[in-house]
């Protein structure tokens, strides 16, 4: 079934990319872990919508499956696992600000500008690539990295990794209409199992160190 022509699809992908960029910039300001996990689910939903747009434009059946996998993995399972871990370790102190959030926001905006500046020349070479999707994808990647550097709680680091992965997912959707189905499935399984193992190690760290601040993990040197 082909519902959209390429122009409509491009417009829709542009809007979805902008919304994703807003969630990425917003994630820098959000300090409550629970909210940042829920924001990941929102990003997942937007990514699934992007995959669905591609599916409805190209009629490729694997794109429908990809959209479904995205909903299951990124909206339901991964945030679910993280919320459960959060619930089990019951943090005493929520707020953590290594970099004040206003400065972090400025940095994130700066990274976004860099991404647009660097990527736009490449993006314009291809018809299907939309103006916004590729630079947004790179912005998500860089902001995810910033989150990991700026926040020390183990769960924040996991959130940062998933945000980076979301950026790559958007790039895959926009540049190549999604990855081959077998790879898509494999990446999904890796993400689920990876988050499960990271959650497990986070719980063990919490039990052993009585904190999930990764600053306390620095006894191994040299």
């Amino acid at each position: 079934m082909v519902l959209f022509d390429v122009e409509t699809a491009r417009g829709l992908l542009n809007s979805i990319s902008l919304l994703l960029l807003v969630t990425a910039l917003g994630s820098v300001l959000i300090l409550r872990l629970e909210s940042s996990i829920r924001l990941l689910a929102v990003q997942g939903l937007l990514l699934a919508a992007a995959a669905a747009v591609v599916a409805l434009t190209t009629g490729a059946s694997h794109a429908y499956v990809a959209a479904a996998i995205t909903v299951i993995v990124k909206v339901l399972i991964v945030p679910g696992i993280l919320l459960r871990v959060l619930c089990e370790i019951r943090l005493k102190k929520e707020v953590e600000a290594v970099i004040p959030s206003r400065i972090a926001l400025l940095l994130a905006i700066g990274l976004t500008l860099v991404a647009y500046y660097v990527v736009s020349p490449i993006a314009s070479r291809d018809a299907f690539l939309t103006g916004n999707a590729l630079p947004t994808a790179v912005s998500l990647l860089l902001i995810g990295l910033l989150t990991m550097l700026a926040r020390k709680k183990a769960i924040s680091q996991i959130v940062g990794i998933i945000a980076m992965e979301n950026g790559l997912y958007l790039m895959a959707v926009a540049a190549t209409r999604g990855l081959p189905l077998a790879v898509e499935l494999g990446v999904g399984v890796d993400l689920v199992v990876g988050v499960m193992v990271m959650g497990l190690v986070t719980r063990q760290i919490h039990r052993t160190f009585d904190t999930i601040n990764t600053d306390h993990l620095r006894s191994l040197r040299g």
Binding site: A154, I161, L168, M171, A175, Q204, L217, S219, L220
Partner: peptide, 28 residues
């Protein structure tokens, strides 16, 4: 499950996963 082992496992997971995310970019 000792403190040192958990620290090593955590660093290993995080650094290698972030590193390999760049490889996925290359694959794309």
């Amino acid at each position: 499950g000792s403190k040192a082992a958990l620290e090593a496992a955590w660093k290993y997971l995080i650094l290698c996963t972030v590193g390999i995310t760049f490889a996925l970019f290359g694959v794309l």
